[in-house]
């Protein structure tokens, strides 16, 4: 976007001016049309330069796993809801803006209630104590990468996401902090637009995260230690 410069010259060509002195009528119509045409050209040029936004949308199945007897608070904060990935062209211009905050909320709101006895979505971390939760879960996106077919020379759109997952006590004390990665791939030839391909690759990556998270949660060493300490109390 920043490299896309548009120069507009409103000067009327000399030949047109000369003609306007001789015959008033046709030049009058040209003069009336010129600003319109210029505006149209500017709009078209700007539209071709603008980055396209992909707001990832998808649905996710509820996991079939036994629920952990815990009341979990979840906080969707900075680094997740407001995360926007910007894909640049080879010349450094913005090509795609990928937003996935809403779909991450949809995903966790489907997965967490199946994993825990009760789940409370917190408006702020301070609200945890008042809600009577056992622990607070805070997911964040650390890194997002996009593989486009024209750059990777593969017949697929690919999405890699690296997350930071944090589990704290009600008072904000440390329970666990771990990194998770997710990968999704969508065959390029199946899609008419790049936006659809990016969306489906991102949804596949989110499903990968959901499966890994739901089956691997109790296997995270610090989470496992905490659960064992709780059960022995």
């Amino acid at each position: 976007m920043s490299n896309c410069t548009v120069s507009v010259n409103h000067a009327v060509p000399a030949a047109v001016l000369a003609q306007s002195r001789r015959t008033a009528k046709p030049v009058f119509s040209l003069c009336r049309l010129q600003p319109l045409l210029v505006s149209l050209m500017v709009l078209l040029t700007l539209a071709s330069c603008a980055a396209r936004t992909v707001n990832v949308e998808g649905s996710y199945p509820r996991p079939n796993i036994p629920a952990i007897p815990l009341v979990l608070g979840v906080y969707y904060g900075e680094g997740l809801t407001d995360f926007v990935y910007t894909e640049l062209t080879d010349s450094g211009e913005e090509e795609y803006l990928v937003t996935s905050g809403d779909t991450h909320e949809v995903l966790f709101n489907t997965v967490l209630p199946a994993m825990f006895e009760r789940v409370v979505v917190l408006d702020s971390l301070e609200a945890a104590a008042a809600q009577g939760v056992d622990a607070v879960f805070i997911p964040r996106i650390n890194e997002f990468q996009l593989g486009m077919p024209q750059k990777t020379r593969l017949d697929s759109y690919e999405v890699w996401v690296r997350y930071n997952m944090r589990l704290t006590g009600v008072d904000g004390s440390y329970i666990a902090d771990w990194v998770m990665t997710a990968y999704g791939k969508a065959t390029a030839s199946s899609f008419s637009t790049a936006e659809r391909g990016i969306n489906d690759a991102a949804v596949a990556a989110l499903r990968d995260l959901a499966s890994n998270f739901s089956l691997g949660f109790t296997g995270v060493p610090d989470v496992n230690d905490w659960l064992q300490r709780r059960s022995s109390q």
Binding site: P61, R62, P63, N64, I65, R207, D208, A210, S211, N212, S214, L215
Partner: peptide
């Protein structure tokens, strides 16, 4: 779901 997801 999630038992037959690619990685699981």
């Amino acid at each position: 779901f999630p038992w037959f997801e690619p990685r699981m």
